[in-house]
Amino acid sequence: MSSGRSARLAERGPTGRYPEVPGPVPQTPKLTLRDRISGWDVKFSPYVYIAPFFILFGLVGLFPLLYTGYVSLFDWDLLDETHKFIGFNNYIDLFQDDQFYTTLVNTLSIFLLSSVPQIIIAVLLAALLNTNLRAPTGWRIGVLLPYVASLVALGIIFANLFGPNYGLVNGFLELVGLDRIDWQASRFASHIAIAVMINWRWTGYNALIVLAAMQAIPKDVYEAALIDGASAFRRLVSITLPLLRPTLIFVVMTSTIGGLQVFTEPKLFDSMPGSNNGGSSNQFQTVTLYLYQTGFESQHLGYASAIAWVLFLVIIVIAVINFLLTRRLAGTGEKK
């Protein structure tokens, strides 16, 4: 589809970033073949461009999702060859399943404990990074470092830090005269420990996103405030935060979707190696962990599929709320 003109454009500079000169305007009055091709190009190109995603998604996302929906209507054991159709019984059972509600509450609790402090610290950290630092890039790389940690190492390290008997955290608590905490046994303490694991990994990353948004705030706004004699804290609260709102909502939204599917951290945190129990009484089992355990350990694939679908719908609902909220608060960032 290389028309003469676009070939010339290529000659002008194949790597030229922005063709500044528009070039000769097409002058043909009638619809030529080329125009028609161009019309099809405009009409169908978008679909071609998004096609790879949707084709692949059909394979790795949609097919498993529909398959899961189908399986959820059966009493389907992983290794059985025949499966009994039971309609919506798995869903009915699920809504009466105490463990499901336990895991749902755990998930929400860990999600809140990880996202709220994470965003607050990220904003403060971004505010620190937004000062006039020497070697700013060095500091920024530094805060992003946890992002490259290997998950295997992370599990070993944090299990060790939060060990009830020999852990460094409890050693420290004793040193300053506090009681040691059984990070595994207590429901709330275990949620905190898992949230710390998540926060350690993601705070720096979010701080940089917030920092970016901060730097996009016009400097004269600050200068005016400086002249008015506003304190640094005042400036943060009344100028920076309101302007950060769209970015913060973006961060909240992506972390909602990830946060509601937390799996690896609670799995690694369990003192029983390889366990999917999420603690002795499921005190830190999340929904995905429960779904994984049901499907692969207990091998009740039908029931696990029902959990997956309900979780999917829960996430969709929360994500759609967030999406609408984002659009509303961020204004129309796109042209219709």
């Binding site: 046994a185 029983m272 366990s275 999917n276 129990n277 002795s280 009484s281 355990q293 350990e297 207990s298």
Partner: peptide
């Protein structure tokens, strides 16, 4: 069938829960 899972996912965690105060 399921014996090993009962040990791993029902009995051992419950004994741990007793050690933790249940």
């Amino acid at each position: 069938p399921g014996d090993g899972k009962i040990k791993e996912n029902a009995v051992s965690p419950a004994l741990q829960a007793v050690e933790q105060g249940k």
